[in-house]
């Protein structure tokens, strides 16, 4: 009954609409053409609800499908937003962790005797998982070494230490010292943080 009431109401509205359109129709030669199209329009406006009534099941099926698609697209967009948020959070987490571990390593390296300045750059492997538990890809430690000889020799402010250029001997001695220091730093880092020696690179600045 409600369907019939709606149908009659719609037809009434269509009649009002067409009479309204009829009023604003041009008056001369074009009138016939416009009238034909208007007639078709009225026919389609009346036929469509009747057809919907006849093929009701089909219409409902189409409607449900559209709704499903709508909800699916909404759900997908929510999922996508969630994934984006997760990705951003993960990036922030990795960045914070990297900064903290760098600071920690710097402090650790500075405890080694002879190291004056230390700068650590850590490269993390963000694809870390249970199968591949290696967290650090590479650790680059830049070190500024304090010159003990100069400190020892420079006892007075006024008298500068006299250096006799011993050439290669000094270089060899220095490289020997550097090697020892390098080994010491690598040992400290690997022991405290459980990192493989090969992953650590030391640069003297």
């Amino acid at each position: 009954m409600s369907v019939l009431t709606e149908l009659v109401r719609n037809i009434m509205l269509i009649i009002i609409l067409t009479s309204f359109l009829d009023m604003i129709m041009p008056s001369h030669s074009m009138q016939r053409f416009v009238k034909v199209v208007m007639g078709l329009f009225v026919l389609i406006a009346i036929l469509n609800p009747i057809l919907n009534l006849i093929n009701q099941g089909q219409e409902i099926e189409a409607f449900v499908w559209q709704e499903e698609e709508f909800y699916e697209s909404q759900f997908n967009s929510v999922l996508e937003q969630g994934e984006n948020l997760q990705r951003v959070n993960r990036e922030i987490l990795w960045e914070t962790y990297q900064q903290k571990i760098e600071k920690q390593m710097e402090t650790l390296v500075l405890t080694v005797d002879g190291v004056e300045k230390a700068e650590v750059q850590v490269q993390l492997d963000q694809t870390v998982n249970k199968e591949c538990p290696e967290l650090f890809e590479e650790i680059l430690v830049s070190i500024g070494v304090s010159n003990k000889d100069e400190e020892k020799e420079g006892g007075s402010e006024f008298i500068k230490p006299v250096k006799i250029n011993q050439g290669k001997t000094i270089e060899k001695q220095r490289s020997r010292e550097e090697q020892l220091l390098e080994a010491e730093i690598i040992k400290v880092i690997s022991q405290y943080l459980g990192i493989k020696d090969q992953q650590i690179k030391i640069v003297f600045t």
Partner: peptide, 16 residues
């Protein structure tokens, strides 16, 4: 209000 597809009405108005 009459549940007419506005596409058809637009066409009629364009024709006018």
């Amino acid at each position: 209000r009459a549940n007419i597809n506005l596409f058809y009405l637009t066409i009629v108005l364009k024709i006018m």
